[in-house]
Amino acid sequence: MSFDRINGIALHHRVDGPEGAPTLVLINSLGTDYRIWDAVVPMLAGRYRVIRYDKRGHGLSEVPPAPYRMEDHAADLLALLDHYAVGEALVVGLSIGGQIGLGLAAIDQNRLAGLVLMDTAHKIGDAAGWNGRIAAIETDGIASIADQILSRWFTPAFRSPDNPAFRGYTSMLVNSPSQGYIGSCAALRDADHTETARNLEVATLCMVGDQDGSTPPDLVKACADLIVGAKFEIVEGAGHLPCIEQPEMTARLIGDFAGEIFGNGAAS
């Protein structure tokens, strides 16, 4: 893992896979860090250069004061690509990560070899919902709404108290920096990438867990319908974080799509 000052903040990031290979960037969801991709990366890094990072206010990255704008997150991503001297990448964005990918498209589509919009949409939620979440966290902390969030993140089978992975990801959520979480809630509240999606001219895959309670399949399909030529896939047996519950299927879909874009077949 590495720390560098990127776009003015200390960003925690990591690269796996062969130097010079086509680049994938994996962007994690709200309230998580880049470890949510741990089970997926080994299935992709044999053929691709895989970059992960903790977005501002998350994981081990610096936590600027809230609120944030989606443009801030997109500028961080662009600066990270410059840091690694990546001309274009396949960006895989989960939840807010997909919004960040669309934010990059709004700045410069030429930096995108392709886009995987995973459990995300052009517009997520409304101002009242995000403001209510911000107020609850400011008053009582993330733990006060954790059960509600986790019920949307994971399938009932995964949410067993006997499942140590569930307990671990619960800890990841409740221990997220509050300023970083509410800062990104504000970014999601204010972001609307409807027109960006309509004008997208890069190869796009939209995928979603069949039991996603945060961005349900119908919402993700509506996003796919805005994008000319976009593919749409449903991951069975997964909630909002298919990379955790169904890593093999997630890696296969990403790898197959990357192979179509870069012309070197599916990831092993």
Rank of each mutant, 00 (worst) to 15 (best):
I142H: 08
L173I: 07
I261T: 02
H83P: 01
L226C: 04
A135S: 09
A230W: 01
E62A: 10
D72G: 03
G17Q: 14
V174S: 04
V25C: 01
R133D: 06
D162Y: 01
M43H: 12
L115T: 04
A186P: 03
A74M: 08
A258Q: 12
F154E: 06
R5H: 12
T155W: 02
R5A: 06
G255W: 08
K123R: 15
W153A: 08
G132F: 03
N28P: 12
A89F: 11
T204S: 06
P242C: 07
S171H: 14
E19P: 09
K221T: 03
S29H: 04
T23V: 14
G237S: 09
D82Q: 06
A266W: 02
E201S: 14
L90N: 10
A128W: 08
N199W: 07
F158K: 02
L80R: 02
A224L: 12
A128R: 13
A45K: 13
A113W: 01
R189G: 05
D108K: 05
A89Y: 00
S268P: 15
E260V: 03
P18G: 03
G17W: 07
G97M: 05
G259Q: 04
S268E: 12
A105Y: 07
I36T: 14
Q99F: 05
R252K: 15
M70H: 00
A197K: 09
K123E: 13
